[in-house]
C-alpha cells in the first residue's frame, strides 16, 4: 500500500470512529457502547484467552470450507464452462442451489448428518459453491481458444495446458470468487455455529445476545474485521500484484 493511500484509509477510519464516539456519548445508552469501551473489552477478552479460542475455531472452519468450496467450484465451473451440453443440463441445479436460503441448507445438513463438525463445514461449502461455479464458468467461457489451439499443436498435454494456459486466464475470476467468497463464508460460518456448535464466534455472539452484552458482540466483530483486513493486505493483495507483473 502506498503512503498516501494508507494515510487516506487511516483518516477515513478515524472519522468513522469519531462519529461512533460522538453518537455513543450523545445517546448515552448501553445499546451503543463507545469505541473505547469496545476496545477495552477486546483487550480483556484477548487476555483471558476466550476470544483467541473462539476466533481460532471459526478461522479453522472458514479456511477448510473456503478451500473446499474454491477447489470444487473451480473444477465444476471449468467443466461446465467448457462443455455446453453439460452446462445446459445442470444449469437448473445451479439455479436451485443458488436460491435455497442459507438457513435451509444449514438446518437440513444438521438434521441429516447430525450436529457434527462435518455437517457444519458441508453446509458452508454448499452455500458458497454455486457462487464460485457461476463466476468460474463465466471465465471458462471466455478462454482464448487460440492459445488452447497453440497448446494442442505443441502437444502441451493436460497438466501443462491447465496450469500454464487455462488457470492464468481464469485468475481474475478466481480472485473475484475468493474475495466475495471470504466475505460470504464468514457470515455463513457464524450462522452455522450459532445453530449447532458449542464453540466459535457464532456461538459466542449468540451467547452475548442472550446476555444482552452488546459491548462483547462489537468487540468480537472488530476482532474479526481486523483479521479479514490482514488477510486482504498480506495475502490477497500480494497475490494480485504477483500475478499482474506481466501486464
Amino acid at each position: 500500500m502506498s503512503r498516501s493511500s494508507f494515510l487516506n484509509s487511516s483518516l477515513s477510519l478515524g472519522l468513522l470512529l469519531i462519529i461512533w464516539q460522538l453518537i455513543a456519548v450523545m445517546l448515552d445508552t448501553s445499546s451503543l457502547p463507545t469505541p473505547i469501551l469496545v476496545f477495552d473489552t477486546l483487550l480483556a477478552e484477548l487476555n483471558n484467552g476466550e476470544l483467541v479460542h473462539h476466533l481460532g475455531i471459526t478461522l479453522y472452519r472458514l479456511t477448510i470450507s473456503f478451500f473446499l468450496a474454491m477447489f470444487l467450484g473451480v473444477a465444476i465451473g471449468l467443466i461446465l464452462g467448457r462443455h455446453e451440453k453439460l452446462n445446459l443440463f445442470f444449469d437448473s441445479w445451479l439455479i436451485i442451489l443458488l436460491n435455497i436460503p442459507a438457513l435451509v441448507t444449514i438446518i437440513l445438513c444438521y438434521i441429516w448428518f447430525g450436529l457434527i463438525e462435518t455437517a457444519a463445514i458441508f453446509a458452508v461449502v454448499i452455500n458458497k459453491l454455486p457462487n464460485v461455479v457461476v463466476t468460474i464458468r463465466e471465465g471458462a467461457r471466455n478462454l482464448d481458444e487460440e492459445l488452447i489451439e497453440m497448446a494442442n499443436a505443441y502437444r502441451f498435454g493436460r497438466n501443462k495446458t491447465l496450469f500454464h494456459v487455462i488457470l492464468p486466464q481464469l485468475y481474475p475470476y478466481i480472485m473475484a470468487a475468493a474475495r466475495t467468497g471470504l466475505a460470504l463464508i464468514w457470515k455463513i460460518v457464524l450462522v452455522v455455529e450459532m445453530l449447532g456448535r458449542s464453540d466459535g464466534m457464532g456461538y459466542q455472539i449468540h451467547l452475548f445476545f442472550q446476555l444482552f452484552d452488546i459491548t462483547s458482540i462489537l468487540a468480537y466483530t472488530v476482532a474479526f474485521i481486523i483479521i479479514i483486513q490482514l488477510i486482504e493486505v498480506f495475502i490477497l493483495q500480494p497475490l494480485d500484484n504477483r500475478s499482474q507483473r506481466w501486464k
Binding site: 487460440e146 489451439e149 500454464h164
Partner: peptide, 8 residues
C-alpha cells in the same frame, strides 16, 4: 498471430 502466453 504470435499466440504467445502473455503471462510467461
Amino acid at each position: 498471430t504470435p499466440r504467445l502466453l502473455p503471462w510467461r
